[in-house]
């Protein structure tokens, strides 16, 4: 049952992607899309944990919906921060590779956390090791584990914990 729903979700996602890319509902395009999406969904049913590890509860959907504006806000804030650093003549850097810990257990949750950290400029995930993340930080404000975790991870983690656990 779980496998069938994983295939169905993957199939629908791929089909919608295909139709959006084509921007048309002509019969030949729909048929090609259905066949290809079905084959890929069956072959890769265990591959896409984005969907199968997602907790499909109403609260998780709401959180996913709220996560996007929060993330975009962080993206803009940190871009402006880096822009200021680059434009300051003295180049006020304080680079460090800090170690932080995540409470997230699922692979997908950790992946999205690492990617979100990397996407916000100023912090870059260098290495993942179980629950530990090593993060390069352009203007490090703290180098001990707890303080760095609170600064970098806590904001994203709050959302991802509900979505993936």
């Amino acid at each position: 049952m779980k496998k069938a729903s994983a295939i169905a979700i993957l199939f629908l996602t791929l089909l919608i992607f295909w139709l959006l890319l084509n921007g048309s509902l002509a019969a030949d395009i729909v048929i090609v899309g259905v066949v290809t999406a079905l084959v890929i969904a069956i072959l890769f049913r265990d591959g896409l944990a984005v969907f199968s590890e997602f907790r499909a509860t109403p609260r998780a959907f709401l959180t996913a919906f709220l996560y996007l504006p929060y993330f975009l806000g962080e993206l803009i804030k940190s871009n402006l921060h880096i822009a200021r650093v680059v434009l300051t003549p003295s180049l006020p850097l304080n680079p460090a590779i800090v170690k932080v810990r995540t409470r997230l257990k699922s692979r997908m949750g950790r992946l999205i956390l690492a990617n979100s950290i990397t996407l916000t400029p100023g912090t870059l995930t260098v290495e993942l090791d179980g629950e530990w993340l090593y993060i390069h930080w352009v203007t490090a404000e703290a180098t001990d584990i707890d303080a760095a975790t609170a600064q970098i991870v806590a904001g994203f983690e709050k959302y991802l914990e509900v979505m993936y656990g």
């Binding site: 880096i82 822009a83 680059v86 434009l87 990397t118 996407l119 100023g122 870059l124 390069h136 352009v138």
Partner: peptide, 28 residues
């Protein structure tokens, strides 16, 4: 922002800092 990313690429001191400026300021 893309210009600032290029500027950061020139100004930053080492590979990791350049990577920060060059690959991610470009996202926004």
């Amino acid at each position: 922002f893309l210009f600032l990313a290029g500027l950061g690429l020139v100004r930053m001191p080492d590979l990791f800092n350049r990577l920060q400026a060059g690959t991610k300021a470009t996202t926004l």
